[in-house]
């Protein structure tokens, strides 16, 4: 029991910085089995900048066409070095399986002549179980 506690503490201390700072969005891959008409993914966008940024979450299909998914929240401000959870609920739309991209987008320096939009996309595969 004591060893388990020590191990859990070590893992929590060791992995926390990775989850909080080292990614712009995690996870970037996933397979989800669902017994309903939708499948849900929780992603964690992170802000690696030293200032607040505006973040948008978009869901696309394999051809980068928008998917009518429920994203909460889909637009938000993220503080420097912070991350937060976003819940994405994707409908199967009658299919037995569905591949989607969930993308975190931000334009950290707007109102410039040539702006760069950084987009981090994760690929997720939902499979409907009967």
């Amino acid at each position: 029991m004591k060893h388990a506690r020590i191990l859990a503490t070590a893992l929590a201390v060791g992995l926390a910085p990775i989850a909080a700072k080292a990614q712009s969005m995690s996870p970037m891959r996933g397979e989800i089995n669902s017994f309903t008409d939708v499948f849900a993914v929780r992603v964690f966008p992170a802000n690696p900048y030293d200032r607040k940024i505006r973040v948008e979450i978009h869901v696309y299909d394999q051809d980068f066409q928008p998917v009518d998914a429920r994203v909460s929240p889909n637009v938000f401000q993220l503080a420097s070095q912070a991350s937060r959870s976003v819940l994405v609920v994707v409908p199967f739309d009658g299919a037995a399986e569905r591949k989607v991209r969930i993308c975190t987008e931000s334009i950290p320096f707007p109102n410039q002549q040539t702006q760069i939009r950084a987009q981090i996309c994760g690929k997720f595969f939902g499979r409907r179980k009967s």
């Binding site: 191990l7 080292a22 990614q23 712009s24 970037m28 002549q113 040539t114 760069i116 950084a118």
Partner: peptide, 20 residues
């Protein structure tokens, strides 16, 4: 004491400067 860790593919993009 065995430690396991799995790192999924990850990516960070940090815009430093815009273009002109």
């Amino acid at each position: 004491v065995i430690f396991n860790g799995t790192i999924a593919p990850t990516c960070t993009l940090v815009v430093a400067t815009n273009g002109t």
